[in-house]
């Protein structure tokens, strides 16, 4: 199981047993490959998955990958890595029998129980990794989740755990040079231009502007178009913003073209301005740090 889920608590013992002094070139190459794959997996719609990964190699590559990321210390790559690991974990969990899902879930939520319609988790345990309490079914201190709800929560939990910085970071030359090689191999961070406008400056919109993965680029273009429209940008200015989004989406398997993006702009600009904070989250486009509902949404709801 550790091969598929190297973030489980039990994996730490396996990693410790290996010992840093026995880490060799091949181990670090495996770690670099893992981080590279995770960063690219975060942006791709489909990414190959190893069927039966070995416990030891997976645990070691995961642990060493995190050490290399810590040496480079880039929030951008930590974010991409954690998302990619979460996507991978979900791919395995989707095929995992129910007892296996429960075993993984218990590692994050020790008191999770099967309940009618799905699962129940004590509120305090949910809050350790969950970020949407107001929209959950909460009663008497228990959060009730469907299977789908549990998977969404686990995706968040895996990503958060993957992002936790290791307590100690090796500083020897072997690790340092591996970290430098890793950094050189990774796609360069996308720097989003700062626009004016109360919607274009929202963290969620900026996250979308940095590019959306395949399968979500249409929704991403809707977010950008709605943000531009609601901020009162003219069509020409909005087209320039949309071009940046299209560029940042990159090629992936099939390119997302400016023609598709302009079609979205046309549709949005034919209608009154409309911006839906919730839709960004529902389509999985919101950044992890999204403080939903944002200040604007709260003010609207108060009326």
């Amino acid at each position: 199981m550790l091969g598929k889920y190297p973030f489980l608590t039990a994996a730490r013992e396996l990693a410790r047993a290996k010992g840093l002094e026995r880490i060799g070139f091949e181990d670090l190459e495996g770690a670099k490959r893992r981080v590279f794959d995770a960063v690219n997996r975060a942006a791709a719609k489909e990414f190959p998955v190893m069927e039966n990964p070995s416990d030891e190699s997976s645990v070691i590559s995961y642990a060493l990958g995190r050490l290399l990321l810590a040496i480079n210390d880039s929030d951008y790559y930590w974010q991409k890595f954690s998302r990619g690991e979460a996507v991978l974990a979900m791919q395995y969990l989707a095929r995992e029998p129910a007892p296996g899902v429960l075993k993984v879930a218990r590692d994050f939520f020790p008191s999770i129980a099967e309940a009618e319609g799905g699962y129940s988790i004590p509120m305090a345990e949910y809050l350790a990794y969950g970020s949407q309490l107001p929209s959950t079914r909460l009663s008497a201190g228990l959060v009730s989740l469907t299977k789908r709800g549990l998977f969404e929560l686990l995706k968040n939990a895996v990503a958060r755990r993957a992002k936790e910085k290791p307590p100690a970071v090796p500083k020897n030359d072997l690790f340092k040079s591996a970290a430098e090689e890793l950094k050189a191999s990774l796609p360069k961070p996308i720097v989003v231009r700062e626009y004016e406008g109360s919607h274009l400056t929202l963290p969620c919109v900026k996250a979308v502007l940095a590019g959306a993965p395949e399968g979500k680029r249409y929704y991403g273009s809707m977010v950008i178009a709605n943000a531009c429209r609601t901020d009162g940008l003219g069509k020409a200015a909005a087209t320039a913003v949309m071009q940046e989004f299209v560029n940042n989406c990159g090629k992936q398997t099939h390119p997302f073209t400016m023609r598709e993006a302009e079609a979205t702009l046309e549709w949005v600009y034919r209608r009154p301005p409309f911006f839906n904070c919730n839709a960004i989250r529902q389509h999985g486009l919101a950044p992890d740090e999204c403080a939903f509902p944002c200040t604007r949404d709260r003010a609207k709801r108060r009326k």
Binding site: S131, L133, P134, L138
Partner: peptide, 22 residues
């Protein structure tokens, strides 16, 4: 149980009582 709750977790409790997202 509440001692280790993060700042975000506590904010969620306030948002829940405030009916945000509901």
């Amino acid at each position: 149980a509440v001692q280790p709750l993060s700042s975000l977790a506590r904010k969620q409790l306030c948002d829940y009582a405030g009916g945000f997202e509901v």
